[in-house]
């Protein structure tokens, strides 16, 4: 990475005017970095700073506060704290992240990765292909398929033994979690099977000779060794799930009655359906804050492991 970068080589090629050449080089370097710098500053850095400001204003999509909005200090935060829908939304976001991401995707992905080590190659590659296909599909397609499955008379309703009920009105959160687990398991499977390939066979065999059974070896040998991969997997899944919008919005629009309005969906509803752009930004900032706190927690968990493995 950075160590691979080479020092400038202009000095040894300089023939007549080394300083001029290095000045030209400098200009060229800057010019080549400029387009991506412009995109990243214009469409990432400035919007991020602007969001921090807008989150403390009463900006609206339409009406009098669309043009002449003001800085309202902590009014949005106060409103948020007293907004029961916001707290419901935080709860739903955590259920979605923990239920479908951390638990379902990771456990299923790990199970498939472990099975993949031991089943025959045809079963492994065909099941792997199916699971990966679900992951490659556009999110809107996944949303549509699971929407149809959970309709009254749909296959999922039949499997649940309630063929005449619309599961998206009776157990909406469960259905969207299942859809997200179906879609995202491949990522954990791929990442964790890569991690499992790096577990030295000798360690496992030594434990085997000591007479340790499969489950004992899994929990005391294999999982501790792949812990860094597991933590990175959890971190990436958490960040992806916490900001997911399309899947839930296309399936339920946050309904019925806000029962699936996780924070990104609630933000969209407040901002673009109830015109509250300022308040919507406050919600988005809170979302980023929650993501940052969770990331720091994971990275702190990871640090001792990283130090161990480098020493």
């Amino acid at each position: 990475m950075t160590t691979l970068a080479k020092p400038p080589t202009s000095d040894d090629t300089a023939i007549a005017e080394p300083r001029l050449r290095s000045a030209i080089r400098h200009v060229v370097t800057t010019a080549w970095l400029f387009p991506s710098a412009a995109l990243l500053i214009g469409l990432f850095i400035i919007p991020t700073c602007y969001a921090v400001y807008l989150g403390f204003t009463n900006l609206e999509l339409l009406g009098q506060y669309a043009q002449n909005y003001n800085f309202t200090g902590l009014a949005n935060l106060q409103r948020m704290i007293h907004d029961p829908t916001f707290w419901l939304s935080v709860k739903l976001t955590l259920i979605f992240v923990i239920g479908s991401g951390v638990i379902a995707q990771t456990v299923l992905g790990l199970a498939l990765a472990l099975l993949g080590q031991r089943v025959n190659v045809i079963a492994r590659s065909s099941v792997g292909a199916i699971v990966i296909l679900a992951w490659v599909l556009p999110e809107i397609t996944v949303a549509f398929v699971w929407y149809s499955f959970s309709q009254a008379g749909g296959t999922l309703s039949h499997l649940f033994g309630v063929p005449n009920s619309d599961l998206l009105s009776t157990v909406p959160m469960l259905v969207v979690c299942m859809a997200n687990a179906w879609r995202g398991t491949a990522f954990s499977m791929l990442l964790l099977s890569a991690g499992l390939r790096n577990v030295p066979r000798e360690v496992d065999e030594a434990a085997q000779l000591e007479g340790a059974g499969y489950w004992r070896r899994l929990f005391t040998v294999t999982l501790p060794i792949i812990r860094p991969t597991l933590m990175i997997n959890l971190l990436l899944i958490t960040l992806a799930t916490i900001s997911d919008f399309t899947l839930i919005f296309a399936m339920t629009q946050g309904g019925p009655g806000n029962q699936t309005a996780i924070l990104p969906v609630y933000m969209y509803i407040e901002a673009f359906q109830f015109n509250q752009l300022g308040y919507g930004t406050t919600i988005a900032l809170t979302l980023v804050l929650i993501g940052a706190i969770l990331s720091i927690a994971y990275i702190r968990q990871l640090r001792p492991e990283l130090q161990d493995s480098t020493s």
Binding site: T2, A5, K6, P7, P8, R25, T29, L33, L40, L43, F44, I46, P47, T48, Y50, A51, L54, L239, I242, S243, F245, L263, P264, M267, Y268, A271, L277, G280, T281, A284, L285, L287, V288, G291, S295
Partner: peptide
């Protein structure tokens, strides 16, 4: 390929940007 001032910092910043959700950037 080039020596660039604050390159390490810039690269970390770029890495950090990959984690920013569009939900934050959307309204601004």
């Amino acid at each position: 390929r080039r020596k660039i001032r604050f390159k390490g910092l810039v690269l970390v910043l770029i890495l950090f940007l990959t984690g920013l959700p569009i939900t934050l950037l959307l309204i601004p």
